[in-house]
């Protein structure tokens, strides 16, 4: 599936749109980490929690759980929530 990577993570992916595969959001992120080592830990903590300023959207709806099912014809959008100063 197509995955949109936020600019803060382009140092890993090198580009905004990449391909990754998996049957769930968690599997897609695991595949992303295989392709771009280290990228998952910047988004997901060691207990499987989505980090505070990371938002995931599948088919334009926000995903709160990594076990949410996905299919290859959808798009996963990874967004950095605006914060800080």
């Amino acid at each position: 599936m197509r995955v949109l990577i936020p600019s803060a993570l382009h140092s890993y992916s090198g580009r905004p749109w990449v391909e990754a595969s998996g049957a769930t959001v968690g599997e897609v992120l695991a595949d992303l980490d295989r392709r771009f080592p280290g990228i998952r830990f910047r988004m997901i903590d060691e207990q499987g929690g989505i980090r505070r300023h990371i938002r995931l959207f599948y088919r334009q709806r926000q995903v709160f759980d990594l076990v949410a099912p996905v299919s290859d014809d959808g798009e996963l959008l990874i967004v950095q929530a605006l914060s800080g100063g």
Binding site: A8, P37, G38, F41, R51, H53, I54, Q80, A81, G84
Partner: peptide, 25 residues
């Protein structure tokens, strides 16, 4: 501010940097 923690390592006093394979967790 948006991303999780990591560590970077430079073997040449900052000319090049590599991210730690397994940061503290």
């Amino acid at each position: 501010g948006h991303l999780g923690p990591t560590l970077f390592r430079s073997p040449d006093l900052g000319r090049t940097w590599q991210e730690a394979a397994r940061p503290p967790a």
